[in-house]
Each structure stands twice: as structure tokens, then as C-alpha cells.
Nucleic acid binder design. Sequence first.
DNA 1: GCATAATTCAAACAGATGTTTTAAACATAC
DNA 2: GTATGTTTAAAACATCTGTTTGAATTATGC
Lengths: 214, 214
Amino acid sequence: MIPTKDKILNTAEELFADHGFAETSLRMITAKANVNLASVNYHFGSKKTLIQAVFERFMQRFTLDLGIEMDKIEKQKNFKVDDVLGGLVGPITNLDQLRPDGSAVFMNLLGRAYAETQGHIRRFAMEHYADVLKRFTQLLHATSPKLLPDEMFWRLHFMLGSFIFTLAGHQALQEISESDFDQKVSIEQIVKRLVPFMAAAFSYDSTLSAVTNP
Amino acid sequence: MIPTKDKILNTAEELFADHGFAETSLRMITAKANVNLASVNYHFGSKKTLIQAVFERFMQRFTLDLGIEMDKIEKQKNFKVDDVLGGLVGPITNLDQLRPDGSAVFMNLLGRAYAETQGHIRRFAMEHYADVLKRFTQLLHATSPKLLPDEMFWRLHFMLGSFIFTLAGHQALQEISESDFDQKVSIEQIVKRLVPFMAAAFSYDSTLSAVTNP
DNA sequence: GCATAATTCAAACAGATGTTTTAAACATAC
DNA sequence: GTATGTTTAAAACATCTGTTTGAATTATGC
């Protein structure tokens, strides 16, 4: 028998990813999970903290795996941008073994969290991501030490946008890809396409403006 | 005296951008706009159509300007990726003359619309953007005719993600930039930094994998 | 100036929301 | 087996939501 607390988390996770936070009511969750309405407030205190709890499960696993991946990269002597960005593939796809379709669900949640109103999820997530993101930034910077800090900052967020946006909306993109090109793509394949694309952007030299065409 | 309909549109626009659609109630709008609650349903029918009306004002101007920009580029004989992407700068910044902080507001709305639940705004927007986006795609493809259609598709959406995500969250980024680097940046400056970055990504050749480092 | 239409207004509507309450059921320990 | 603490249950709570109503007001055309 699955504990009530877990039943709530599992169902909330699914519904949040599908419909968003504001659009998912506690009654929708408790009805689908077959638990009492009051149990959410009993176990989690409020809806807000339930949302954070849903995030926490994913983040723990993700940041753990990402940290390990960073360690590996750090030990390499001549790692490149592609290596650092490629380090994201594992931690993302590993979420699928945390739960069926885990990576997809997490990316949906992430996208929604970023568009969130008061940004309380964003703030909450940033606290947990802070150290990992810092290591990630440092490794990236090590591959392109010539880049000025402010340029680093912007490029990092440009990339972040592409990642979150693409993966949060991957369902729609997958459907289009299948109907237009007969290509059924997984999240892993999307990320693997995205990595060299962003790596090329990241390692371009802004001192030579782009006049290097034949 | 500003017509009630416009008062509603102006205030709704501001609140939607600041707080999101679901989190902005008609009572918040009508109170701030100093109009009667019922006037929203009288003038717009429903909240849903009000949201669309808010979008429409921006989209008309944006697509118009973007079309003009495309015409110019099309007439050049040897336009490059940077030229096509650079064509976005004008139409975006022009929104500031449509209304104070217009580009910022519009980008906020766009970001929120993309995270929207049922995607009714997304669908609505896509209908209006369809032809412009198609021209945009064609011009981009013309700069890199070797790219296979599916690779084109993905790169286009990777870029779209970077643009929308960055510009939708520009306020936070601007604040960080100012506190960390003492650099006060405008949306125009962000876009102008983003364009060569994405251009470099877009024009990278995936047949030669990235081994072209010194 | 009058009739007609368009707009504004206050009030109420019906329903959904998160949260709290109080009692019942359950589990655990002694 | 009784006492204690934990969990579930049904119901009510207060509040907020978008929308509708019907009368009052204002503007428009003649």
C-alpha cells in the first residue's frame, strides 16, 4: 500500500506537469489520488509547499547526478564546451529511471516554474541549484577563459533559455517532428542535438565579428 | 477622456505582464482601471477574449514591422544569418513607441503565453504569426541551404527558446547585470548580444563535429 | 426635445478555491 | 487492553472567481 503522502506527490506531479500549478486544484489531486482533501494540508501544510515538495524529489536526484558528472569532467585535463554541456545529458535522462517519463515531467515543471508569478518556485529552485550552477559556470568558463564575466553571464542565460524552453515544450515539438519528418525523437535525442548547437554558440569569438563566410 | 475599453486593455496588459493571466482577476483589473467590473464582459465578452485582445494590439504592430524588415532583407543579394536575426531588433524595440516599456511588456506576455495551460493563447498567436514565421524561416534557410529540414526545424526552436526565455525574464537578468557588472542594459542591447550568439550557433556545420580548436 | 441606442452601475449569481475544524479510525507502545 | 499519538474522514468555512441581471445613466440621431 502506497502511503498517502506519496500518492499525493505522484498525482500532484502528474497534474502539475499537465495543467500547471494554478490550474490544478487540490480537489483534482485528491480525487485522482483517492485520498481525502484535507490530507494535503495535513501532510504538506499548504499547496505552495506541496509544489515545492514535488520539485524537491526531482532536484535531489538531478543535482546529485549533475555533481557526479561535474567531478568526472573536472578530472579530464582538456575538456571542451561540448563536454561540459554534454554532462547534462545523463542527469536529465536519468530522471526517467526515477519515475516513468520523469525527464519529461520535470522539464514541464521547470518550464512552468519559470513562468510562475511570484517566482517563489524560481527562488526555491535557485537556492538548491546555486552550488551546482556555480560549478557548472566555472567549468564552462574554464573552457573559454578569454570570455569576460558579463559575456559569460549572458551566454549562460541564453543557453539556459534554449534548454528549458525546448525541453519544457518538448511534447509539441516531438509531435511536429513526427508528423513532418516521420522522426520519433526522445528527450535524450533532443538534448544531444541541442548540446553541439549551444556549444557552437558558446565558443564563438565575439572579437572577430562574423565575417568568416566563403 | 480615455474610453473604458482602452482603460481596460491598458491595465490588463500591465497586470497580465506583472502577475500572469490566471493570477490576475477581473476585479484587480477593473479596480485599478477605475471601471465597473461588468464592463469587461460587456466590451470583451469574456476574460479569455480580453487576453487575446491584449495580445492583438502588440502582434499587429510587431508582425507589420517584421514584414517590412523581411522585405528589406529579401532585397539584399547576399544576406547572412546575422542579417535575418538582426531583423528582429527593430520590430521588438519599436514596441516601445507603441507604449512605454512596450517591448518589455510584450516579451513578458509572450513568455507567459507559452507556459499557458491549454495553450489557447499559443494557438491564437500562432495563427497570427504563421505567415511571418514562415517568411522568417525561409529567409533563414536561404542563408544555410545545406541544412536539412529537420535540423532547420530544431535549430529554429532552439533559438526561439533563447529569445523568448531571455526576453521574458529580462527584468531579473537586467537587475543581476546591474548589481554584478554595473551595467544597465536595455532590451535592445540584450537582443543585439543575443543575435550574433544565436547566429554563430545557427551557422555551425554539424557535418564537421566540433574538433576545430587550436 | 424626444426616442433610441449604448454604456455604466450595483448587486447578485453560481461555482470553485485553499484551508480549518471536529470527530472517527487506525496504529503503536506499554 | 488501554492509553497515546498519528492518520483519515466528512463537513463547513470564508473567500474569491468569472459572469449575468436589470435598472440607472449617458450619448446619439432626428
